[in-house]
């Protein structure tokens, strides 16, 4: 009786809520995860060629970065609302909006990462007979990985947070529960969904950090000696680029 009392009393923390609505919570979390995955995945696919174009033709660097920044400035609620007449009320509205936001961070970090590859390394690879494509995939991208992964982590974390805004049109994963709970003043629902959302962000960040460690074993040796040399370097270069 005590447990069900917390639902009736509208308490913040309520085990009964988690038990009785576990299906709803799981569904929302699953939706949240796939919206995030789709957005960041597509964002990465779109930003990769854009970054390469911006690097190949330096005249385009300014316009590409400028345009993505302008998109980033538009508030999420407005972005989703503007996409609704184009795509109807569907998950693609949310995914498109989130993809557009992720481009800002991803392109910036891809460029910073590729720019951080030492010219001598590039020369050496070219001297060994590497062609453009092989140079890119075998030398430049691996060396750019720390910056790219840093961008991917940031994009993922902010995408998870921003997915909630999709709740306004019913495609916001845990955001649906937050919006609904706000309307009905259901405290346990808002708090549980919010906490799950933050946990999801932390978990995704840790997973990507682990992936980064696995993919770039050589930075660890350097980091222990140089105190985060790599990241400081990219931050610096980033500032100079800006």
């Amino acid at each position: 009786m005590k447990a069900s009392g917390c639902l009736a009393a509208n308490e913040w923390i309520c085990g009964e809520y988690v038990r009785s609505r576990s299906e709803e919570l799981v569904d929302a979390t699953v939706q949240h995860v796939w919206i995030t995955l789709a957005s960041v995945g597509i964002g990465l696919l779109v930003s990769f060629p854009l970054a390469l174009i911006a690097r190949r033709w330096r005249v385009l660097t300014g316009p590409v970065l400028g345009l993505t920044t302008v998109l980033y400035t538009i508030p999420s609620l407005a972005m989703f609302s503007l996409l609704v007449p184009l795509m109807g009320i569907s998950a693609s509205v949310v995914v498109t909006g989130l993809v557009l936001y992720s481009l800002t961070i991803l392109i910036r970090n891809l460029l910073a990462g590729l720019d951080s590859v030492p010219a001598e390394t590039r020369e050496a690879a070219r001297g060994m007979g590497y062609g453009q494509t092989r140079l890119l995939f075998a030398v430049e991208l691996p060396l750019a990985l720390p910056a790219v992964m840093a961008g991917l982590r940031m994009a993922t974390v902010s995408t998870i947070a921003m997915t909630t805004v999709g709740g306004i049109i019913g495609y916001g994963g845990l955001g649906n529960l937050i919006v609904d709970g706000m309307r009905t003043l259901f405290k346990a629902q808002v708090l549980t969904a919010s906490v799950l959302c933050v946990l999801l962000a932390v978990l995704a960040d840790l997973l990507l950090l682990g992936l980064q460690r696995l993919l770039t074993p050589w930075t660890r040796a350097r980091r222990s000696g140089g105190g985060g040399r790599f990241r400081v370097g990219t931050a610096r270069r980033q500032k100079e680029a800006a």
């Binding site: 974390v157 902010s158 937050i178 709970g181 706000m182 808002v190 919010s194 933050v198």
Partner: peptide
């Protein structure tokens, strides 16, 4: 600040 959804904070404060 990046990880916490604005909507969540607004929702919690509103309640």
């Amino acid at each position: 600040g990046r990880a916490v959804p604005t909507l969540a904070v607004l929702g919690l404060l509103m309640l």
